[in-house]
Structures are given as structure tokens and as C-alpha cells.
Amino acid sequence: MRFINRQPGAGGRWLLALLPLILLVAVYAVASSLRLAENPDDKLLPGASSMVEAMRQLAFTEDERTGDVLLWSDTAASLQRLLLGIGVAAVVSLCLGIAAGTFPLLGATLSPLLAVVSMIPPLAILPILFIVFGLDELSKVMLIVIGITPVLARDLEQRAREIPRETFVKAQTLGANSWTVVLRVVLPVLLARLFVSLQLMLGAAWLFLISAEAISATSGLGYRIFLVRRYMSMDIILPYVAWITLLAWAMDQGLKRLHRRIFPWSEGGGS
């Protein structure tokens, strides 16, 4: 059997998925052991015991100054900002994608505009957002919205343009007006695509969130990472990065399962 045709079994699939993580942990453990053997006070590659102790305090001990359990309060603050930003971006991009991809008159204006706006580096306008929206929650949410909405909208616009024109003709022949075509033909297709697009944009959304929290915040996962970096507290930074990765992975899997459940008919539903 040719290599290109070989498929892993259920157990083999899990093993192959975990293999890079196992190798990464093994390499880190060896490197950490070598550095700590030379210098027990080394902070660059802390041992597992120091990271576990640091996370135990952050996850189960109340902060003396605020009375909060820092890991969970940081997580709640970050997820609130992230989910709000993604939710607003999803609604706005869906409306823009339908308008630009379905109605030629609107697309003539919106399509070039989205193409230009999507080229603006969102982090470059972060100071403008702080000036316009202040240093509170709104500016952080708006960075996520502005950062991912144009790309999402362009992707949905392209998906709308891929719908065969014959489908629109058939719907109108059966008596459907413009809004009926949008609701019954275009919207289901773009909603299915939206879940996939959000999966692809999760990394960017987290990037914008962490960047905003690093500059102006008093809570959040990004705030905590950049707060402790001045002390070179890698025993906190590395577990926080791992926790963010785990949260992003869980969100990705949640979107994938929702996509399969709600849109089983959609092509690529198992992606």
C-alpha cells in the first residue's frame, strides 16, 4: 500500500496527535534539568515542581491585595472580553458578507472597502482605539472586533459568491423575493461557513486580546503575563501560556462540534 493511502487507526491517531507534545515536554525537561544542574536558581527554564507550586498558589489561594483567586479571575476577565469581541465580530461580518456577496450594488462599494480595511494592521491602530474608546473594556473588545471582522467578512463574501447562480434563479422562479433568497438560501450557507472561519480566526482574536491586556488592563491573562515578566517569573508565564493554549483548543473543539451538530449537511463539516 502506498504511503499516501495509509490511514491511522483510532489509537494511532491519538498517539500521532500527542507525539509532538510529548517530544516538546521531553526536550524541555532535559534542557531544564541541565540548566538547573548548573544553576539551581535559574529562572529561564524552571522545573515542573516550581511551576506546579506557582500555579497552585494562583489557582487555589486568594490574593492578599484583591481577595481574588488570580488564575480564575484573570481567565474570567479575558474570556468575557474575547467572547464579546468574537460575538460582535461574527454578527457584523455575517451582515457584511451577505451584503457584499449577495447584492452586486452593495458589493461594488463594500468589497473594495473590506479589502482595504483588512490590510490595516490592527495593532497599529491600538493607540487610536485607546484615545477614542478610553482605557477601559471597550477598547479591548473593539480591537478584537476590528482585527477579525474584515477578514471574516471577506471570507463570508467569497463563500456567498461561490453559491451557484442557478440556485438564485430557481428560488426566484418559485416566487422568492430578495430577502427570502437571503434567509432561505444564503444565510444557512454562510452560517455554516462562519463556524469554520471563527475556528481559523481564534488565534488572531487571542493575539489581539493579549496585546490589549498587556498595554492597558488591571486583570486578564495577558495582563498577568506581562506583569510578572519584569521578575522573569517563567514558572508563571509558561503555565499561563499553556492555559491560554488549552482554552483556545477547547473553543476550537467546541466550534467544531457545534458545526457538526447544527450543519451536518455542510461540506467540510468534519474538518
Score class of each variant (00 low, 15 high):
residue 46 P to C: 06
residue 151 V to D: 04
residue 124 A to C: 06
residue 67 G to D: 14
residue 70 L to W: 01
residue 214 A to E: 06
residue 50 S to E: 14
residue 36 L to F: 01
residue 80 Q to W: 02
residue 181 V to A: 12
residue 108 A to T: 11
residue 134 G to K: 14
residue 74 D to F: 02
residue 93 S to K: 06
residue 173 T to S: 14
residue 211 S to R: 05
residue 103 F to D: 10
residue 236 I to F: 02
residue 9 G to T: 15
residue 65 R to M: 14
residue 69 V to D: 07
residue 55 M to V: 11
residue 122 P to F: 03
residue 258 L to G: 08
residue 157 E to C: 06
residue 227 L to W: 06
residue 10 A to N: 10
residue 51 M to Y: 00
residue 138 L to S: 10
residue 45 L to S: 08
residue 158 Q to T: 05
residue 263 F to C: 00
residue 25 V to E: 01
residue 28 Y to M: 09
residue 244 I to D: 13
residue 188 P to T: 02
residue 16 L to F: 03
residue 199 Q to V: 09
residue 226 F to E: 12
residue 33 S to Y: 00
residue 21 L to G: 06
residue 253 Q to G: 05
residue 177 N to A: 10
residue 119 M to K: 09
residue 201 M to F: 03
residue 251 M to W: 14
residue 257 R to G: 02
residue 248 A to I: 04
residue 82 L to I: 04
residue 199 Q to F: 02
residue 237 I to S: 04
residue 87 G to Y: 04
residue 82 L to Q: 06
residue 31 A to G: 08
residue 128 I to A: 13
residue 245 T to K: 03
residue 124 A to W: 01
residue 192 A to H: 09
residue 6 R to M: 10
residue 247 L to D: 01
residue 42 D to C: 02
residue 65 R to Y: 07
residue 59 A to W: 00
residue 49 S to T: 14
residue 112 P to R: 06
residue 68 D to S: 08
residue 189 V to Y: 04
residue 143 L to P: 05
residue 15 L to R: 09
residue 161 R to P: 03
residue 122 P to V: 10
residue 161 R to T: 01
residue 94 L to V: 14
residue 59 A to S: 15
residue 220 G to M: 12
residue 105 L to A: 15
residue 209 L to S: 04
residue 248 A to R: 12
residue 113 L to W: 13
residue 220 G to P: 08
residue 162 E to C: 09
residue 13 R to Y: 04
residue 11 G to M: 11
residue 77 A to G: 08
residue 253 Q to I: 13
residue 238 L to Q: 05
residue 207 L to P: 01
residue 217 A to S: 13
residue 117 V to P: 09
residue 93 S to N: 08
residue 44 L to D: 12
residue 192 A to E: 02
residue 25 V to D: 00
residue 54 A to L: 02
residue 64 E to N: 07
residue 222 G to Y: 05
residue 203 G to T: 12
residue 57 Q to T: 14
residue 143 L to M: 12
residue 125 I to R: 11
residue 53 E to D: 12
residue 190 L to D: 11
residue 86 I to V: 15
residue 131 I to E: 10
residue 231 Y to W: 14
residue 212 A to V: 00
residue 184 R to C: 04
residue 9 G to E: 10
residue 264 P to R: 08
residue 10 A to D: 09
residue 31 A to P: 09
residue 129 L to A: 07
residue 252 D to H: 02
residue 68 D to K: 02
residue 246 L to A: 15
residue 138 L to A: 13
residue 260 R to D: 00
residue 164 P to K: 07
residue 121 P to M: 11
residue 144 I to R: 12
residue 228 V to P: 03
residue 262 I to D: 01
residue 169 V to L: 07
residue 84 L to N: 07
residue 266 S to A: 15
residue 243 W to P: 09
residue 95 C to P: 00
residue 196 V to E: 14
residue 148 I to K: 08
residue 271 S to K: 10
residue 206 W to M: 13
residue 49 S to L: 12
residue 35 R to F: 00
residue 4 I to H: 10
residue 189 V to L: 02
residue 205 A to M: 02
